[in-house]
Amino acid sequence: MERPAIGWSTFIVFDFMRVPPPAARTITVRFSMGRSVSLPAPDQTCAPLWSNGGVSGRSYGGESATDRLARRRRQLLDAGLELFGTTGYRATTVRQLCREAKVSDRYFYEQFDSTEDLLLAVYDECTARLEEAAVAALGDPGDAVQDLARRGLDAFLSVVESDPRLARVVWFEVLGVSARVETAYLARMQSFGHLMVAVVAGRAEAADVPEVTRELMATTAVGAVSYTVMTWANADFSPARDEVAETLARFLAGATTAVLESPRSG
């Protein structure tokens, strides 16, 4: 049986997809009239039909290639927060993300290898927002521990309350996805715990607290705050934010004081 003819449409497909034809010594083009012509395969000395490098640097409408990449990434991140935070990670497809981001499907893989990679990127941005808000609100580090904790927690909870999508991504959608996501989640939560412990770590009375105790304090602190935020978000942010922040601040201050005042063995 005669092999089907290869017409110019074949080269148009290769050109459009920016993929060179299969490597070979020659490429045989068979025309419908039965004649064939052998062409040299592309090599280092032949000019390519399509060059990514020659196009990627062009500006369109005053927007550079770098700016286009950054804009598409931003659109996909925003779409990820919207869909993961409303529809849910497991129910969201690449096609839905691209539709929400208003970009072609092929641009997704220009930025991310998978929806899991996008989830991690969205998660990183969400947790960075929380941490930045808490740190900015701390103020004078010489204030009482409870006052510092209250200010930091109130700012932290304010970000959560203002964007329920963030709460869903940070505390719900990342759970049970994969070992890689689980590792990122645990590391970030411990980082939040370290931030809370850092409020008292610089005080003189905390200087001789063993490192293992600091790590346990961080784990305990973030565990209390995280579970409280999960139940608070699930209850449609009831009770009021200031009451939640005050209660958590008292708990953290009391736990910290108990650890600092406990007798050291040895």
Rank of each mutant, 00 (worst) to 15 (best):
W8Q: 12
F11T: 07
F14R: 11
M17I: 01
P20V: 12
I27V: 13
V29T: 08
G34Y: 01
V37T: 11
S51W: 08
G61Q: 03
A70K: 14
R71L: 06
R71G: 00
G80M: 12
T87Q: 15
T87A: 14
R95K: 12
E100N: 03
K102S: 10
F108V: 03
F112I: 02
L120W: 02
D124N: 06
E131A: 14
V135H: 13
L138N: 01
G142W: 00
A144P: 00
V145N: 05
V145A: 09
L148K: 08
R150E: 10
R151N: 04
A155Q: 05
L157Q: 07
V159A: 01
R165N: 05
R168K: 12
V170Q: 04
F172E: 08
G176V: 02
E182Q: 14
T183N: 07
A184F: 06
A187H: 05
Q190G: 13
H194W: 15
D208T: 14
D208L: 12
R214D: 04
M217G: 11
G223D: 05
A224N: 09
S226G: 07
Y227M: 09
T228G: 06
T228P: 00
T231L: 09
A235I: 01
P239F: 01
A240T: 05
D242P: 00
A245V: 01
T256V: 10
V259R: 10
L260E: 11
